[in-house]
Structure formats: structure tokens, C-alpha cells
Computed example of a mutant assay.
Amino acid sequence: MLGRLYELREEVAIFLDSQQKADFHDNFQSEGFQITLAYLVDIFEVLNAVNLKQQGKSINIITHHDIIRAFMAKLDLWKCRVQQGNAASFRNLDSALADSKLVSDLKAEFIRYFPDIDDKREAWKFIRNPFQCEVTDVADEVQEEFLELKFNSTAKEDFKDMDLETFWGKYLPVYPLISHQALRILTMFGSTYLCETAFSTLVAIKTKDLRCALSSIRPCIQHLVA
């Protein structure tokens, strides 16, 4: 919506003038408003992209964490560029953005939402790849089991071919302590995506078949009916 408004800003100004809305016209045409509007178009575009990346049934909290950290790193890059007079990161804003305060405020807001985001990186390191970690990266009570896993050549090959959830689920019976710690993190809800999907599906079907509709597994209707 903001993008459309920005694209049609000249037509909007003509319309406001034709409607004799002098105050609206003057405010809309002001340099400050145009700069702010251009910034909003660009920043909501990237925020929407970040939001879309975090949706889907195969996304876990570690993936969410990585996406947020990457975006916050981009904010630092954008701020640095803007301070140097380079607005290349903002397609619509171009050289009109002369102040980096807007980007700084957005970074501060993300820090408020995710205050411990850097701490999680080290705490979840062994989950992402246990074969590139040291024994000191895991808790004392699972260190011996961790070493057994790290030097298991079969497990190392499996890790290359499996996603995180499948890998840790497979080795839960073999290495229960460390696998349990990993799965506790991986099974956490990283966002409200599944909840929103459930409500959307419920509104659409309004029946007791909600779980069948939400599942990624195609149900055998004949067996269920029987």
C-alpha cells in the first residue's frame, strides 16, 4: 500500500489540489513527508521479507534466530552507509535520506524485542553442528555423551544428509541426554505462524477436521471414514 502511494505521489498531489485540500496538499508535498514516506516504503518492504522468511512448517527457532541476527547485522550496515552519505540500501529513498536516526531507532527496537539474541548463538552452537564444537561448548552433564557423538563417523555422515530435527530425533535413543537438550530447543515455537495457520484454517473449514487440514501429511480419508 505504501509502495503504491509513493508511486502515485504526483497523482495524489494533483487530486488533493483538485479537491481544494490545501493543508493536506502542502503537508503531502513537503520534503520531510516525502523523505519519511520513501523510508517507510523501503523499510516495510524489508520487514515484510523478514516476516515471510520466518513462516512455514519446516522453520524452527534456530532458523528464526539466524534470520533475526542477519537482519540486525544489515541494520548496522545500513546505518554505517547512511552516515557516509550512501543510501544504496534504500531503493526509493536514494540520496534523500541524510539522517541515520531512523535506522538507529529500528535497531534499538529490535534489541528491545530480542535482548538476548547474541547469547543464544553460543548456547545453541552444538545444536547447529555438534561436529564443529568443542566439549566446553556444552553443559558438564552431557560432555561425555557429546564426545561419543562427535567421534561417531556414522552420525557425522547422517548429519550431512538430514535436517536438524530428523538428526537429533534419530540419535535420541543413542545419546538421550544431549539429544533431549537439542530437541527441547528445536520443538519450541519460534513464531505464531502455526497458530495463525490454525485459526485461518478453522475459519475456512469450521469442522472437527482441523488437525487433518493442518497436517503436511496427506490423510487417508477412506481409512478415517471407516
Rank of each mutant, 00 (worst) to 15 (best):
Q83N: 00
D94T: 11
V41T: 07
E45S: 04
A98C: 13
R91M: 12
D105S: 14
L40H: 11
A108K: 15
A73V: 12
N51W: 02
L97A: 01
K57F: 14
G85H: 00
I43M: 09
F90W: 05
L52G: 04
D105M: 15
W78A: 00
R112Q: 14
I68G: 12
L93D: 04
D42W: 07
K107C: 07
V82D: 01
V103R: 04
S58E: 15
N92V: 04
D66S: 13
I67C: 12
I67S: 07
L47Q: 00
L106N: 02
D94I: 13
N60V: 13
V50H: 03
N48L: 03
I62L: 13
S58G: 14
V46I: 09
L97N: 05
R112L: 05
F110K: 09
S104D: 06
R91S: 11
F90E: 01
D116E: 08
K53W: 03
L102I: 07
C80N: 06
S100P: 09
A70V: 08
P115R: 10
F44T: 13
K79E: 04
K79I: 00
A70H: 02
A49M: 08
A96L: 07
H65A: 11
R112E: 11
A88K: 15
G85A: 03
R91Q: 10
R69D: 05
L77P: 02
A73R: 14
L52M: 13
I111W: 04
R91I: 08
R112V: 02
R69G: 05
F110G: 12
F90D: 05
P115D: 04
I61W: 01
G85C: 05
R91N: 12
C80K: 10
K53E: 05
Y113V: 10
K101W: 15
N86S: 01
V50S: 13
F110R: 07
I59K: 10
T63V: 15
I62H: 09
A96K: 07
I62V: 13
H65D: 09
D94P: 03
V46S: 07
L40D: 05
A88G: 10
H64Y: 09
A73F: 04
T63P: 11
M72L: 05
A70D: 02
K107I: 01
A96M: 08
K53M: 10
E45A: 12
L102W: 14
A98V: 12
E109T: 12
R91F: 08
L47C: 10
G56P: 09
Q55I: 13
D99I: 11
Q54F: 03
D42I: 08
N51I: 10
L102C: 13
Y113A: 11
K79P: 02
S95N: 09
E45F: 00
G56E: 11
K79L: 03
V82W: 00
L47I: 09
R112W: 10
R81Q: 15
I61V: 13
R112K: 08
